[in-house]
Simulated scan of single mutants.
Amino acid sequence: MRIDIWLWAVRLFKSRSVAASTLRSGRVRVNGTVAKPATSVQVGDRVTWRDPLRDRVVVVRELLPKRVGAPLAVKAYTDQSPPVPTREERAEVGLRDRGAGRPTKRERRDIDRLRGRR
């Protein structure tokens, strides 16, 4: 089964086109390998990608050819993602004083590292 259809069918992405564009950007990995929209997914595969708030890790438990309701969709995968950081944890990372100016290249890399982007 295609990974873009499966991600949409289990409601991890709002639409199939959003899932496909995320896959084309190279941000989604299946078993550690960068995936394209037509990559096949099987039961037991580990799918990872970066959400705006955290890294998502999902293990495929069931293949669904069509989009299903939320209660059935949750049964089709095992979510092994770390918990969503609290608002306070997100706010303290990478804050700069007002008027401090644009960060230097080194400061930007430090901020990205703290936010978990690299």
Rank of each mutant, 00 (worst) to 15 (best):
R54D: 11
V74S: 05
A19I: 08
L63T: 06
F13G: 03
P83C: 00
T78K: 11
V84R: 02
D51Q: 11
V47R: 07
L95K: 15
V41P: 11
V47S: 02
R118N: 02
P103G: 02
R29L: 08
A20V: 07
P65Q: 04
D110W: 02
G69E: 10
V34L: 12
R29Q: 12
V68T: 13
V30E: 02
E88G: 08
G94D: 07
G99D: 05
S21D: 12
A73M: 07
L53S: 14
T22F: 14
S25V: 07
A19N: 02
E107F: 01
K75P: 04
I111E: 03
P71S: 09
V34W: 09
S81N: 08
T33Q: 10
W8K: 04
G94R: 01
P71C: 08
D55L: 14
L114D: 05
P37V: 13
P52K: 12
V74F: 02
T86E: 14
L95I: 15
D79M: 02
D110F: 04
V34K: 14
G44P: 03
S15H: 10
G101H: 04
R98N: 05
T39E: 11
Q80S: 08
W8S: 02
R108D: 05
G26K: 05
E107V: 03
R54V: 10
L63Y: 05
V74L: 10
E89I: 11
V10P: 06
R87V: 13
V74P: 01
P52V: 14
V93G: 02
R50V: 12
V57R: 10
R90A: 15
R56G: 00
R11M: 05
L63A: 09
I3R: 00
L23N: 08
R67H: 09
A73E: 09
L72H: 01
R109Y: 00
D55A: 12
N31S: 09
G32H: 03
D112A: 08
R102F: 06
V41W: 10
W49H: 13
T33I: 13
A20I: 04
V93S: 08
V30H: 04
R61D: 14
P85A: 08
R109K: 12
V28Q: 00
T78S: 11
K36F: 03
A9P: 01
K66A: 15
L72G: 00
D51T: 13
D79I: 03
R87N: 02
P52E: 12
D4K: 07
K66Y: 14
V41Q: 07
T104D: 05
A100N: 06
D97H: 07
P103T: 00
L72T: 04
L53R: 15
A73Y: 03
A9D: 01
R106I: 06
V60L: 06
V84G: 00
V58K: 09
S15V: 09
E89Y: 07
W49Y: 15
R24D: 14
K105E: 12
G32L: 09
Y77T: 12
